[in-house]
Design a protein around this nucleic acid. Structure first.
Lengths: 104, 104
DNA sequence: ATATATTTGTCAAAAAATGACAAGTCTTAT
DNA sequence: ATAAGACTTGTCATTTTTTGACAAATATAT
């Protein structure tokens, strides 16, 4: 999946032939705001992932992975983080994991 | 640099034999809050990077890289993003870059 | 014990994200 | 042409999150 999360939602929505209004209702969301989400002008609220998974019968874990990779991808993009720096970031994440262990 | 940004600041501060209060003053910051930053309980505000670079005579670009990798590393850690997923995230960042080009 | 350094908790203010609604465009059908 | 439905955009109040500030507690050294 090499799209944004918003585009992904739109894809799902079109595949299932739902209008913005219809899907928005299922998600307890304003259709105008769903439009913004699909167009990348707002973020999808993580709290709605379970609902989204249910609507389209998706595996929640996989959907959350789509979401997480979108979020991190967005940050990588916005911060102009190069692959080299991303490697460093990964090492720092690793380091944080070791910190956590120490607390235990 | 495989530490958190907060630890890095503490390192710099100790190397230069400054107290929390002294460094906080230079950063226009409350010493209590600087303490929290060093201990990872708050984030360092990006707006203060130039000041921080100046105080310790660091290259701002490199410092910003330290900051960015810390931020992304934190997100990787918090979202339990595996290396495999991080690869996907990188591809999505790439994809966003292609989107940007299209707009031009 | 005193003084200094650091940590922790709390809370108001500032900033950012979200919900809601109005008004706009665009397309399609009649 | 216009009416209806689908989508987009702008705005603004509300909510949530982050930050600044201060007080008080703990720790460290003299």
């Amino acid at each position: 999946m090499k799209t944004t999360f918003g585009e992904y939602i739109r894809l799902l929505r079109n595949e299932n032939e739902l209008t913005l209004t219809q899907l928005a209702a299922k998600l307890n969301l304003d259709s105008a705001n769903l439009s913004k989400i699909e167009n990348g002008k707002r973020d999808f609220d993580e709290k709605r992932l379970p609902k989204l998974a249910k609507i389209f019968k998706l595996d929640l874990t996989e959907l959350r992975n789509e979401y997480v990779t979108d979020q991190i991808g967005k940050q990588i993009y916005e911060t102009n983080c190069t692959k080299q720096l991303l490697q460093v970031a990964e090492e720092k994440a690793e380091y944080r994991r070791t910190l956590k262990e120490k607390v235990i």
